[in-house]
Amino acid sequence: MEQTSGALTEAVYYILLSLTQPLHGYGIMQKVEQLSGGRVKLAAGTLYGAISAMLEKGWIRQLPEERGSRKKEYEITDVGRDVLHRELLRLEELLRNGREILGGISNET
């Protein structure tokens, strides 16, 4: 079983989310920026490191390269989806506790 007891980094979380559709590196950067309303801007080096680590863990996979295209496309795997789901549960717990204790803010959403 994958060890995913820790929190995912914001970058990893958003990269996985963005890869529910096939994207190449630059596409991931744009998608993550769009998803986060311009807040999370992934830099190329950080993205490269995260992609390499996730490929190794089997959370994402590289799609077969199209002829004539140098750009590599990636997509989330079932293992990656599982990791995302578990992260969602963790985040929900964080939100629930925060709202319960701080109150107020919860009504806004």
Binding site: T9, A11, K41, L42, A43, A44, G45, T46, G49
Partner: peptide
């Protein structure tokens, strides 16, 4: 094309 960075988190900056 927007702000250009190679590292966007502490972990990769520390690795560098």
């Amino acid at each position: 094309s927007g702000e250009f960075e190679l590292h966007s988190d502490h972990a990769t900056r520390i690795k560098h």
